[in-house]
Deep mutational scan, measured.
Amino acid sequence: MALNTPQITPTKKITVRAIGEELPRGDYQRCPQCDMLFSLPEINSHQSAYCPRCQAKIRDGRDWSLTRLAAMAFTMLLLMPFAWGEPLLHIWLLGIRIDANVMQGIWQMTKQGDAITGSMVFFCVIGAPLILVTSIAYLWFGNRLGMNLRPVLLMLERLKEWVMLDIYLVGIGVASIKVQDYAHIQAGVGLFSFVALVILTTVTLSHLNVEELWERFYPQRPATRRDEKLRVCLGCHFTGYPDQRGRCPRCHIPLRLRRRHSLQKCWAALLASIVLLLPANLLPISIIYLNGGRQEDTILSGIMSLASSNIAVAGIVFIASILVPFTKVIVMFTLLLSIHFKCQQGLRTRILLLRMVTWIGRWSMLDLFVISLTMSLINRDQILAFTMGPAAFYFGAAVILTILAVEWLDSRLLWDAHESGNARFDD
């Protein structure tokens, strides 16, 4: 018995066209964080690309023209004298008006014999932002004059995390709450300039795509075929072959399989920071003279006294001054041990922890910024005066060393310790 099946006739004509040209192939790229070699397709503007294995951002879609970056830099340069030299806060102490600005706080630190601690604050609040705007201006002028731009481009990517104007702005709020127990506070004209400078700096850093600047100024022929001998440069993120001198053909720094002496430098910085954190938390970090009496505060006791007036601000200072430094030390110690013992479990967790400490590390400088600003506000000789204690130097040095330890660690070593050939990683 035959089955009668109805015929289905399409209502619209289906047209099949042959592909007349070869589909576009992607360029081969190595991930600078996990060293995976993959094919990167062509990316349009405002599109980002991520590593298929570790999800690290390979290409950032946010990109401004150099002219727009230069305009932002010149605007920031105009704001800087007002943000640093004009009063941020006014207080009335014992019937006398006192003005506080950024430069005055750094000068008070240096004047009291601790120039190293003052230079830490100076670099993060004044030096690094000033280098940022002058570097962008150098790129703008240098591109037109045919100057060598490689050193500036190499420095810009590392400079971003040292620009800490946003953290200093939080420190202004913390210092205001600490001082309000002794005097009446009012915002100064410099505060508005400083807030504007923070906003412009944040926007500029978020749109400063150094890798795209490398592509514009020093374009290189990408690798179009897969080759395990391809290496990625950690300076400019170019994937290719080393030249005859073993250097990256684009930025001219040595092109090595792994960062040289990464573990040794990381261990040295980490152990030194552990040693410095002990006096930083045991010795007094601030000293207040009130009517001839002397009151010393460690980091913890200062947080407890701050909690009596504002528990939320005390929580912020606790996280930045105690929780973050010790968390960074514990995480980095764990990561280094996992590399030495070739741990194969929990790779995803370790990668996330490394990215976390990379982002939060700079916030530990908050305590030094609060001390710097408070020193310029309260300084009335023996009637009422505020000065920093010996722990300030140890704390600042420990924070900087932990930042350097994270920067010096080559994250690809975590993958080397893991089993080879993993296309995915999980716990």
Rank of each mutant, 00 (worst) to 15 (best):
M1Q: 00
A2I: 07
L3D: 10
P6V: 13
T11K: 08
T11I: 13
E21K: 09
E22M: 08
G26R: 10
Y28A: 13
R30E: 02
R30Y: 04
C31T: 00
C31D: 01
C34N: 00
D35E: 08
L37S: 12
L40C: 09
P41I: 14
S48R: 15
A49W: 10
A49F: 07
R53M: 11
C54I: 00
C54E: 00
D60I: 08
D60A: 09
R62E: 04
L66A: 14
A71W: 11
M72G: 04
M72V: 07
A73G: 11
T75W: 01
L78Q: 03
P81V: 05
G85P: 05
G85R: 14
E86I: 04
P87C: 10
L88C: 04
L89G: 03
L93I: 11
R97D: 02
I98F: 03
M103D: 03
G105W: 01
I106N: 03
W107K: 13
T110M: 02
G113Y: 05
M120G: 04
V121L: 10
F123L: 02
C124M: 10
S135N: 06
G142Y: 01
L145P: 01
N148A: 03
R150L: 03
L153C: 12
L154I: 08
L154W: 01
L156N: 04
E161G: 15
L165P: 12
L169F: 13
V170L: 09
V170K: 12
G173V: 07
G173A: 07
G173N: 01
S176Q: 09
K178E: 01
K178T: 01
Q180S: 14
Q180M: 12
A183S: 10
H184R: 05
Q186W: 10
V189I: 14
G190L: 02
G190M: 02
G190I: 02
F192R: 08
F192P: 05
I199Y: 09
L200T: 12
L200W: 13
L208P: 15
N209R: 14
W214Q: 06
E215I: 13
F217W: 04
Q220W: 06
Q220T: 07
Q220L: 07
Q220R: 15
D227T: 09
D227E: 11
R231W: 04
G240N: 06
Y241R: 06
P242T: 14
Q244T: 10
Q244Y: 09
R245W: 04
R250A: 04
R250W: 03
I253W: 01
I253S: 15
P254Y: 15
R260C: 05
S262H: 04
S262F: 01
Q264M: 02
K265A: 05
W267S: 06
A269L: 15
A269M: 04
L271V: 09
L271H: 03
I274T: 08
L277A: 08
P284I: 10
P284V: 04
I285P: 02
S286E: 00
I288N: 00
R294E: 02
R294Q: 15
L300P: 02
M304S: 08
S305N: 06
N310M: 13
V313H: 01
V317P: 00
F326G: 05
F333A: 08
F341Y: 11
Q344I: 12
Q345K: 13
G346R: 15
G346Y: 12
R348C: 12
T349M: 13
T349E: 09
I351G: 13
R355H: 14
M356E: 08
G361N: 01
D367L: 00
S376G: 04
R380V: 05
D381H: 08
F386L: 04
F386H: 00
T387S: 05
Y394R: 02
F395T: 01
V399T: 08
I403S: 04
L404S: 07
A405N: 04
W408R: 02
L409Y: 09
R412H: 01
H418Y: 11
E419K: 07
G421Q: 08
G421N: 14
A423W: 08
